[in-house]
Computed example of a mutant assay.
Amino acid sequence: MSGQGASLAGSEAAAAGFDGSAGSADEAASLRREVAVLRRALAERDAFLAGVAHELRNPMTPILGQVERLLAAAERDAPEGKVAQGLAQLRWLVERYVRRATTLLDVSRAQTGQLALLAAPVPLAAVAEEVVASLNPMAAHAGSTIAVAVADDLVLSCERLALDQILDNLITNAIKYGDAGPITLAAHRDGPVARIRVSDRGVGIPPADQVRIFERFERAVGDPERAPTGFGVGLWLVRRLAEAMGGGVAVHSRPGEGATFTVTLPLHD
């Protein structure tokens, strides 16, 4: 939980604990005022995040379009040339930037209850292939490989973009904390649902932190000197997206033995 969220929860609990006696009435009123101030501060922060996300993402759309046009021309002239390779890398970097800005926007929408998801039949294998292809350069840079074991007949009832976001966040997390080891994305049918697992062999997560990491602005590694860069919202957003589509997420991990995140989502009838 973030510092402001913890203060808000603590203040609400303290205010509720007063018995209404004359000696505590002033303190209870003061605590209620503090709760109101904290709520306004949280609302202002979420509004700020939404505004920042729009400002960061919108200018990149025409830039990405121009990079794609240049890349298409370079690939026609010299598909194996350095210009084409450089533009392909630039396109990947811009796409990653846009996804990070989109994450901020989705966080704001989820917090304010404006994250509307429409379920439709979605082939899991196809989305998994797209996400892994987009993240392979990042994994290679970190010294990791990504193996995929997803059956072609697994069709989910979910929103495709939300599924993309879930897989992207989980695999990115595995790359960050996987200690240059192999990463596996696997899935299997379990009655009316699919269980999707993303596993790494990295630093692992202490038991005491395995609930905390699904809160906003929290990370698997609490020490800021050791933690990779990021907003600390990826796993929180995974949980919110999975729950919004009738599923959930859980983690199994031991320190030094890696981590496995399991997302459960309904299958299409």
Rank of each mutant, 00 (worst) to 15 (best):
4 Q>Y: 11
4 Q>L: 15
5 G>F: 03
9 A>W: 02
11 S>N: 05
13 A>V: 08
14 A>M: 12
20 G>R: 07
20 G>C: 13
25 A>W: 04
26 D>E: 14
28 A>L: 08
30 S>P: 00
31 L>Q: 01
37 V>Y: 09
37 V>G: 08
39 R>H: 11
40 R>V: 15
43 A>T: 09
44 E>N: 02
46 D>V: 15
46 D>M: 14
48 F>M: 12
52 V>H: 06
54 H>N: 08
54 H>K: 09
56 L>T: 07
59 P>F: 00
61 T>L: 15
67 V>W: 04
68 E>A: 12
70 L>W: 07
73 A>F: 07
75 E>W: 05
82 K>D: 12
84 A>L: 08
85 Q>L: 08
88 A>Y: 12
89 Q>T: 15
91 R>M: 14
93 L>M: 09
94 V>M: 09
97 Y>G: 12
101 A>T: 07
101 A>N: 00
102 T>M: 13
102 T>R: 15
107 V>I: 10
112 T>Y: 02
113 G>K: 03
115 L>V: 04
116 A>D: 13
118 L>I: 07
123 P>C: 00
123 P>V: 03
124 L>T: 02
125 A>P: 00
127 V>F: 04
128 A>I: 01
128 A>E: 04
130 E>F: 00
132 V>N: 00
133 A>C: 10
138 M>I: 06
139 A>K: 03
143 G>K: 03
144 S>N: 10
144 S>R: 00
144 S>V: 02
147 A>H: 05
147 A>M: 01
148 V>S: 06
149 A>L: 05
150 V>I: 05
151 A>V: 01
157 S>T: 04
157 S>D: 07
158 C>M: 10
159 E>Y: 05
159 E>F: 05
159 E>P: 02
161 L>D: 05
162 A>Y: 03
162 A>I: 02
163 L>C: 07
163 L>A: 03
164 D>A: 07
167 L>P: 02
174 A>D: 13
180 A>R: 13
180 A>M: 04
183 I>H: 12
184 T>G: 07
186 A>F: 07
187 A>I: 04
188 H>I: 06
188 H>T: 12
190 D>H: 05
201 R>G: 15
204 G>R: 02
205 I>Y: 04
206 P>Q: 06
206 P>M: 02
207 P>Q: 01
207 P>C: 06
210 Q>V: 03
212 R>A: 06
213 I>L: 10
213 I>T: 02
214 F>P: 07
217 F>Q: 14
217 F>H: 12
217 F>I: 04
220 A>N: 12
221 V>W: 03
221 V>L: 08
221 V>C: 11
222 G>M: 06
222 G>W: 00
223 D>T: 10
225 E>T: 09
233 V>T: 10
235 L>Q: 01
235 L>F: 06
239 R>F: 00
239 R>L: 11
239 R>N: 09
244 A>C: 02
245 M>C: 11
246 G>C: 02
248 G>T: 04
248 G>F: 09
248 G>V: 08
250 A>T: 14
251 V>F: 03
251 V>S: 03
251 V>N: 00
253 S>N: 11
254 R>H: 11
255 P>H: 05
255 P>Q: 02
256 G>L: 09
257 E>W: 08
259 A>E: 01
259 A>G: 09
261 F>T: 01
266 P>S: 05
268 H>P: 06
269 D>T: 06
